[in-house]
């Protein structure tokens, strides 16, 4: 077992919080490592097909929420929630292959980047149209309730999504029907070039919760513990049959909208300010201060992580492209 995995598997000794913190660290740092590799290396080497949207600085959100879920809870990750896939067992190699349009990606080359899902893992693939996932997640929640499970649907989206009619329709429907739907907004303060004050005239996305008659809370999206606790409250609420719950995670997009966007429209001071609040650095400081991890374990962890990612990239690069003869397959259910 590598140290990277070992950091998660400290069952005894340091206690539950230490254990949780190590799992946070593993997934947050793996997400960052994978995305850095994609954005800062493979994309620049022209090895990536199509667009690249990463979530540097937002890793606490999918990880904090994801670790509050059961495997049977159905997730709708946005394009900035890579860790959700990692937590459900999608390996970095499949993610690299997905980004390279190879057969080994989750969609086998049919779609790219974060447009991927797997019903066996209870992950629904988004479409590009921002916000379209919200009513669909409401429908998944309806089905979970209908079938008598106590599972929840969890829908992730950005601040921009909250301007779409679909967002409002989906939440209102779920609220009226009291569906087990957890809504997680990453308010990273920009939607492409659009700053939050041009996106909405109210101060917070969470201010909209009361308008639909659902609870909503604001949380520091760069504090993984805070996100995790909010997610636990939200999930408990939804599981108890009390209806949807909205969490607004305040965070910041530390990159351009996509790898080709230099983000000249973002004041430089904002990047500097939010760099100080980096969620991984904050987590590590807390772990070291609390003695939940030893400094030498941290560097060994990162060494292991890099090796894991190197091997995954190598695998993906060796992975073939799909066979063009399959182009027409699977528009409909294959005839037996």
């Amino acid at each position: 077992m590598s140290v990277a995995q070992a950091v998660m598997n400290v069952a005894e000794g340091p206690g539950e919080e230490a254990h949780l913190s190590r799992r946070f660290l593993y997934y947050m740092s793996l997400m960052r490592e994978v995305e850095d590799r994609i954005e800062r290396k493979l994309y620049r080497q022209s090895k990536i097909v199509g667009g690249v949207y990463v979530a540097r600085g937002q890793e606490a959100i999918p990880v904090g929420v994801g670790l509050a879920l059961e495997p049977e809870d159905v997730v709708f990750p946005s394009h900035r929630d890579l860790a959700i896939y990692l937590m459900r067992g999608v390996g970095p190699r499949q993610i690299f292959a997905q980004y390279m349009g190879r057969i080994g990606g989750l969609t086998g080359g049919r779609d790219g980047n974060m447009h991927m899902g797997d019903l066996k893992l209870n992950i629904v693939a988004i479409i590009s149209a921002i916000g379209a996932c919200v009513p669909v997640a409401a429908g998944a929640a309806l089905a979970l309730k209908y079938k008598g499970t106590n599972n929840v649907a969890v829908c992730f989206f950005g601040d921009g999504a909250t301007s779409r009619g679909d967002w409002h329709e989906g939440i209102n429907l779920a609220a009226v029907q009291k569906l087990p739907l957890v809504l997680v907004c990453n308010n990273n303060q920009y939607a492409y070039s659009t700053p939050i004050e041009k996106q909405m005239a109210c101060a917070n996305v969470a201010d909209r919760g009361p308008a639909y008659g659902i609870p909503a809370e604001i949380v520091d999206g760069n504090d993984v513990f805070a996100v995790h606790e909010a997610a636990q409250r939200a999930v408990a609420h939804a599981r108890d049959g009390l209806g949807p719950y909205l969490i607004e995670c305040k965070t910041f997009r530390m990159t351009g909208h996509s790898a080709h966007d230099p983000a000249d429209y973002v004041p430089k001071e904002l990047f500097a300010e939010w760099e100080q609040k980096d969620p991984i650095r904050r987590l590590l400081e807390r772990m070291l201060d609390s003695g939940w991890i030893a400094p030498e374990d941290v560097s060994r962890h990162y060494d292991d992580l890099r090796k894991e990612v190197d091997a995954a990239v190598e695998w993906a690069e060796a992975c073939p492209y799909p066979d063009p003869a399959t182009l027409l397959d699977n528009v409909y259910e294959p005839r037996s």
Partner: peptide, 14 residues
């Protein structure tokens, strides 16, 4: 052909 537009370059080319 009557399919969605595929992503992977080889499929898109076809």
């Amino acid at each position: 052909p009557d399919t969605p537009v595929p992503f992977s370059p080889v499929l898109e080319e076809a």
